[in-house]
């Protein structure tokens, strides 16, 4: 399925952030050269992200009554419990009380192999969602930006069609921001699968051929807002933030400063009305 230079094992290790750092460049180079494999990796990453999002809230669940009710009705016990139950309960009560008082340290970061800076001190679910956003945006950038023939589904020559199409699919009025003052022009856009409905990706390039993608989701259902954050995934830098239910991520093989300028320009022209 994969050439001998990159093993199936390594592709999974790449997805799971378990790849030795010295192999990162090789795997990413391989994915750039093999779009089919890159799409498979992207699909697996989406799986991983959606599984994480689905199961994460379970860590915050309140414990069931059976665990904090010392006086239990013996008739309600399973047969194999009976006498042992009182012994177990006395031993585990300490643990279970501890569980009731547990603090937020048990929450996962969900960050995978991404390194995020400037994150909020409290690693909330919300921040995990933002990190997932950054990771998905970086992968989508890695998959589509090297594509010379079909980088976008609708190109900028049909910008009005692009706007109508993406706006209909996302259910909001969505106009790609102008980045010409920074030397970037719009190539076009495409729809991508998100965790919960479609995601828009706009692609821009400059005179030197450098490509930048803007990834916009409308998945956050609340009005929370996060600060600007920066993350680096392999050679791809990502600036990302959440603003009133919309997630934005700017990805490029550019340094933090340049990405920051682009992020500010995008921020000034959005949010989506």
């Amino acid at each position: 399925m994969t050439p001998s230079s990159i093993t199936e094992h390594e592709l999974h290790a790449y997805i799971d952030g378990q790849l030795p750092p010295e192999r990162l460049a090789d795997v990413e180079g391989y994915l750039r050269d093999h779009p089919e494999q890159a799409r498979r990796v992207l699909a697996y990453r989406h799986q991983t992200d959606s599984l994480q999002q689905m199961f994460e809230p379970m860590l915050e669940e309140s414990p069931p009554n059976r665990f904090h009710r010392p006086q239990r009705n013996p008739l309600a016990l399973h047969g194999r419990w009976s006498l042992a139950a009182s012994v177990i309960l006395s031993v585990s009560t300490g643990i279970l009380i501890g569980w009731l008082l547990r603090d937020a340290q048990t929450q996962p970061t969900g960050a995978g192999d991404i390194t995020a800076f400037n994150t909020a001190n409290n690693a909330t679910t919300h921040n995990t969602a933002a990190l997932n956003l950054a990771r998905r945006a970086a992968i989508a950038h890695a998959v589509y930006s090297p594509d010379m023939r079909h980088p976008v589904e609708i190109n900028a020559n049909h910008e009005d069609q692009l706007v109508t199409w993406l706006s209909n699919r996302l259910g909001v009025s969505l106009t790609p921001p102008k980045l010409s003052t920074l030397g970037y022009t719009l190539i076009g856009g495409r729809l991508l699968p998100g965790n919960d409905g479609p995601v828009a990706q706009f692609m821009y390039h400059n005179a030197a051929g450098k490509r930048v993608t803007l990834y916009i989701t409308h998945e956050a259902k609340d009005d929370k807002t996060t600060a600007f954050q920066f993350a680096q995934e392999g050679p791809i830098g990502v600036f990302f933030w959440i603003d009133r239910g919309f997630g934005y991520a700017i990805s490029a093989g550019a340094d933090q400063q340049e990405l920051g300028r682009i992020a500010v320009a995008v921020y000034d022209q959005l949010p989506i009305k």
Binding site: F55, M58, L59, E61, I95, G98, W99, R102, Q105, T106
Partner: peptide, 10 residues
């Protein structure tokens, strides 16, 4: 052990 209980339940 306590910190792992929610994960074990899941």
């Amino acid at each position: 052990i306590t910190t792992c209980i929610p994960r074990l339940r899941r």
